[in-house]
């Protein structure tokens, strides 16, 4: 059995910045609460008219390849993990797979395996789960996990449709566009790479958040029962941390950082404060919500890139990635960053 690691990462964020204040100004029915204070989101990036899921993904792949020791032709498997699969404007592609277009246009081998995979905001971390198993079992030597997430169309719908002070579309105002790509391969050292991945779907709550076309306006919408998610799912997290301690013999002292899915700053701190006694503390929590909002399936890597490139992280860091996504997909990925730190000039 092999061990896998993160070999290279690329993140692309569109240039256009849209502030929370601008969004609120555009709403006919203003919320009764201060969205910016509640979520910690001051701004998010927004696609240009020429950008879509496919172009965001492609930009991220090019950036990952630039820092990688591999060229496109070396890659064995390409997994595209975005919720949105827009190409050529707001055309949502069912077939062919977006990964096929990425593969063609960026020079990957025709014989490389490719498929699209969706698991809501757990998309990229689920891609890491899949690729980790493929590398561990020796079926492939390396692979690419990518997501171009053109998610702000749900914000446009929400701006038109929110009427109530408590509305199922409020969460749609927290999202931002981005692309992330990750190349993984075999770890060279025992103390490098992915220690473990634990994923489960609490399907009891599978119907608390839906993304689908709107029936009121042309466009896509997301309907979230945020109160139920908070009430039912967040309260289960402490027990999940107890489970990690028991199964993997780890606790907070084993980690330098936690990277949670980026929903809202207040929700994240409430959740992890609840977990702290059950994990012997909580390591430093990394967030980039203020600048980028919730970038859905790419969120963990947008945060990681922001902190790595800003030289804000310790060397030889061990990170616990925590997924919480519609499904409800709960996941934990424990990893040393190793080569990613080299790529960002932390050491040679």
């Amino acid at each position: 059995m092999y061990k896998s690691r993160f070999e290279s990462m690329g993140v692309y964020l569109p240039e256009k910045i849209v502030t929370t204040r601008e969004l609120i100004d555009r709403m006919e029915a203003k919320p009764h609460f201060d969205l910016e204070t509640l979520t910690g989101i001051s701004a998010r990036r927004w696609r240009s008219d020429e950008e879509d899921s496919y172009t965001l993904a492609s930009e991220a792949v090019l950036r990952a390849l630039e820092k990688s020791s591999y060229v496109a032709q070396d890659i064995d498997v390409i997994i595209s993990c975005s919720i949105t699969r827009f190409k050529g404007g707001l055309s949502y592609y069912m077939e062919p797979a977006l990964s096929k277009y990425i593969k063609d246009n960026l020079g990957f081998r025709e014989s490389a395996m490719n498929f699209d995979m969706t698991n809501a905001c757990a998309g990229m971390l689920t891609g890491v789960y899949i690729l980790n198993n493929m590398i561990k079992s020796g079926l492939v030597k390396n692979g690419l996990v990518v997501s171009g997430e053109c998610i702000t169309p749900i914000s446009e719908t929400a701006l038109k449709e929110i009427r109530e002070p408590v509305d199922a579309q409020f969460a749609s105002l927290t999202v931002g566009d981005s692309g992330s790509a990750l190349i993984m391969d075999r770890a060279l050292e025992a103390n490098d790479g992915i220690d473990f991945i634990e994923f489960m779907t609490l399907a009891e709550f599978a119907e608390l958040c839906f993304g689908m076309p709107s029936t009121e306006h042309s466009g896509v919408a997301m309907y979230t029962d945020a109160i139920a998610i908070h009430r039912e799912v967040i309260k289960r997290l402490p027990k999940l941390f107890e489970y990690l301690i028991k199964k993997y013999n780890v606790n907070a002292t084993d980690y330098d950082y936690i990277i949670p899915h980026q929903t809202s700053a207040r929700a994240i701190s409430t959740a992890f404060n609840m977990c702290s006694p059950h994990f012997d503390g909580i390591p430093e929590i990394l967030m980039s919500l203020d600048k980028y909002g919730n970038t859905s399936s790419t969120s963990h890597f947008v945060v990681l890139e922001d902190h790595l490139s800003g030289k804000k992280m310790k060397e030889h860091a061990r990170v616990l990635f925590v997924s919480l996504a519609s499904g409800i997909a709960i996941g934990f990925i424990s990893a040393k960053l190793g080569k990613l730190e080299v790529n960002y000039g932390y050491y040679n």
Binding site: N119, A203, A206, E207, F210, G211, P213, M222, S326, G327
Partner: peptide, 15 residues
């Protein structure tokens, strides 16, 4: 069904 894009269909089936 309904061109649902989120959640994945598999959790709805699991449920």
């Amino acid at each position: 069904d309904d061109n649902i894009v989120e959640p994945a269909i598999a959790p709805l089936i699991q449920k």
